[in-house]
Structure formats: structure tokens, C-alpha cells
Amino acid sequence: MEVKEWIRGAVLVAQRDLSRFWRNIYWLAGQVAMNIADLVIFAVIFRGLVNPAFIPDYIRFITPGILCLAIFISAFSIGREVGIELRREVTQYLVSLPVTRGALVAGRIMGGVLRGFLYQAGFVILAVVLMSMPSVDKWILILTSSFLLALTMSSLSITLSTLTRDFNLQAAIRSLVYFIFFFVSNVFYPEKALAMRLGSAAPIAYYSPMSMAVNLYRFGFNYTTSVDVLFNLAGLIAWATLSLLFAYKVYIRNLTR
């Protein structure tokens, strides 16, 4: 009975977060437009500038990266709201709800994951069109990667947003996380480019959750076959588990202090 109540509480919180996602329709439309604009700009301009010796078709190369970006944006939207709640002291209301703290955190993270899935869905279809149709086992791999990445990003976002009440600082933290995850990864450029520019520090990029997810997407959508699926999947599981634990501890501590 207690477990049932716990799950009910978490689902209610997740539902609330999901319904709030649609309320920011202009923000959502703006984000989708930006992602599509990125793809178009990459397709129309950058594709022609890239040396084909490194990347023969940049649009196919970057499409899995856009999938990661979609997860990041949507899952991190939870963090943006958590930050606003903290500044406006809505958190007092949240902690007074008749749900356990664990269910509250689980619900919020679940809300972020669902947002990630929904937001990414359109871009997944676009990836099928631009790249190729994955087989059934690859679909499972793609969906698992999306789930793990959304779980990681959602957990990180709600935790990081509670570190400060300052709006600008919250935005700065989000941006710093974005830059670290995306720039120190093989989302925008191949590992070879990183190796040439970063030298012995380049292997750091292998451990980025974005690199891991983008590798799995590239494998899933048949862009490449030379991917260590086990390493990347295990890495994503490790990231998701650690972020989840981190979120559980820090989010509650910051809400109640």
C-alpha cells in the first residue's frame, strides 16, 4: 500500500510538470524553431564548409547531436522551473504536499524524462528521414539511450538549479554545463579533431554522457558501425545512476535548508 501511495505521489508530481511543459507553448515553439534552424543552417551552410575528408556529410553527422540537444533542452526546462520556484518560494508549497520527499524528487525527475521523450520524438522522426530506419534491436538501443540521457539531464538540472537563487547564476550554471557536455564531446566534430586540438586530454570526451549517447545514436541510425556499444551503454547507466543519487540528496537538502 505504501509503495502504491509513493508511486501515485510521484506520478502526480510528474503529471504536474508535464502539464506545465505545454503551458510554456511560446518557449516550446521557440526552442523547436531554434533546433530546426540549427539543422537547416548546418545543412545549407556549414555542410559546404566542412572538409569532406573529415566528415563526408555533416548533416548526417550532426543529426544525432541534435537529438542529444533536444533531450538537454527539454530535460533542463525542469531546472529552469525549479529555479523560478525557488526564487518565488513555491518550494514551500511543494514540500508541504502530502507526498514523501522521495516521491517528489522521483516525480520531478520523471517529469523531466517525459518532457525529454516528447520533445525529442519529432526529431527522432526527422533522424529517420535524414539518416535511415533502424532495426528493432537498434530502436530499443536508441530509446534506452534517450531514457538514460533524459534521466541524467533531468536529475542534474533540478539539482544544479537549487544551488543558487540568483537567476543569472542559475542561467550561467546551465550554460556552463551545456558547454562542458557539448563542446568536450564528439557531438559537433569527430574524435580526430578533438585529438588534434586537445592532444593527450582528448580522451576526456569519451566519458561525456553526450559522446556516449551520440555514439549510440550514430550506431542506431546506421551512420557508423564502429561503436563500442557496451562501453557507451554502461557509461550512460553509470551517469544516470550517479546523477539520480546526486539529485535525491542535493535537491531535498537545498529545498529544506
Binding site: 572538409n51 573529415f54 550554471i173 550554460s175 563542446f183 568536450v184 566534430y189 569527430p190 579533431a193 586537445l198
Partner: peptide, 24 residues
Amino acid sequence: MRIAWFTLQVLVFARAISYIVSQG
């Protein structure tokens, strides 16, 4: 933080992306 991410952008992203851009 801003300096940190700007440095990252300048030293990692800009350098890596300019590496794949054709000399054309």
C-alpha cells in the same frame, strides 16, 4: 563561470570546429 565557459568555447570548440572547416 562566464570566463570558464568562454575559455572552453575559445580553446576547445573554436579550435576543434576550425580544424574540420575546409581551407576554401
